[in-house]
Simulated assay, not measured.
Amino acid sequence: MTATMRPAQGSNISLARRAWEIRRKALRMGQVQGQGYIGQALGVADVLAVAYFHAMDYRPEDPEWEGRDRFLLSIGHYAIALYAVLIEAGILPEDELETYGMDDSRMPMSGMASYTPGMEITGGSLGHGLGIAVGMAMGLKRKKNPAFVINLMSDGELGEGSTWEAAMSASAQGLDNLICIIDFNDQQADGPSTQVLSSEPLPEKWQAFGWFTQRVDGNDIDAVRAAFDAARAHPGPQPRAIIFDTVMCRGVPFLEAREITHFVRVEADEWDKALAVLDEGKPL
């Protein structure tokens, strides 16, 4: 079996540029349909850039390679963000971007594993991703496969009892090959997550369930990278949780300022404006 290098290693493209590319691709897909969960995609782009171009092992030309780290999208409505990173990683061709959300597209508006290379699970019924990740991590251990399972979930899913049942199970099984990352943007369909059903104090809760836990600024690439490195390197027989505090619509200030960002309304004439604003801050 040939050795596999994490895709960011040996690359001259910065993680900041990767995150910018992910944001731009997500905006372009949103423009195709005139809608989409753009706020989440822009907010979580830094986390995805570090995950795919620093932290994970995979082969773009072979998305089902057995040795790959598995990235699970528990929050199926974040699919536009994952498609953007899959295109940036070379797993999906960029010319398919224009088919987003269309009939027969491999990029439906909610993520479906049967349609999309690199999409490990079908998410959408919130609160189930971590349970699937626990089972997957257990299976990898039994096969003596050293791969990690990384499960991305939302702060709204912290209100689901199944999330905490899975968290308890992961600790009981000593799943040190499982990393749960929580996108904490304090927004869900019914309002701010901290007001709908607060899960604070969040780090202390995950620690009480037996997890090695970190909480960092999810839009600070250096902090995100350090958190992933610490999670992978932690020596204890524990699952690992990283709580990433992110800002909805990050990188496009006039969208960041919108009061309702769970499904942010972008007018037809604002897509080009958003792309232009993003382009002004293009990193090297």
Score class of each variant (00 low, 15 high):
4 T>Y: 05
4 T>F: 06
13 I>A: 03
17 R>S: 05
17 R>D: 03
24 R>C: 07
29 M>H: 01
30 G>Q: 01
31 Q>E: 10
35 Q>Y: 11
36 G>P: 02
39 G>M: 07
46 D>T: 00
46 D>A: 03
46 D>W: 00
48 L>Q: 00
54 H>T: 10
55 A>Y: 08
59 R>C: 08
61 E>D: 13
63 P>I: 03
65 W>T: 11
67 G>R: 06
68 R>F: 08
76 G>H: 03
78 Y>G: 12
78 Y>Q: 14
79 A>C: 15
82 L>W: 11
91 I>C: 00
92 L>S: 00
93 P>I: 14
96 E>C: 06
103 D>Q: 14
105 S>L: 01
106 R>W: 13
113 A>S: 10
114 S>Q: 15
114 S>P: 02
117 P>K: 05
123 G>E: 04
124 G>M: 06
132 I>K: 05
133 A>D: 12
137 A>G: 06
139 G>I: 08
140 L>G: 15
140 L>A: 15
142 R>H: 15
146 P>M: 06
148 F>C: 12
148 F>H: 14
149 V>Q: 04
150 I>E: 04
151 N>A: 15
153 M>R: 09
156 G>A: 14
156 G>Y: 03
161 G>T: 05
166 A>E: 11
168 M>I: 10
172 A>Q: 13
175 L>Y: 05
176 D>A: 15
177 N>H: 03
178 L>N: 08
180 C>A: 15
181 I>M: 11
181 I>Q: 04
181 I>Y: 02
182 I>Q: 07
186 D>Q: 14
187 Q>F: 06
189 A>P: 09
193 S>V: 14
193 S>A: 13
194 T>F: 07
194 T>A: 13
195 Q>A: 14
196 V>D: 00
196 V>T: 07
199 S>E: 00
199 S>F: 00
204 E>Y: 00
205 K>H: 00
206 W>E: 03
207 Q>M: 10
214 Q>W: 09
216 V>M: 13
216 V>K: 12
218 G>T: 04
219 N>F: 01
220 D>L: 10
220 D>H: 11
221 I>F: 01
221 I>Q: 06
235 P>C: 12
236 G>S: 13
238 Q>L: 11
242 I>A: 06
242 I>W: 07
251 G>V: 02
261 T>R: 02
261 T>C: 05
262 H>I: 02
262 H>K: 03
263 F>A: 15
265 R>G: 12
271 W>M: 04
276 A>R: 07
278 L>F: 09
278 L>I: 10
278 L>W: 11
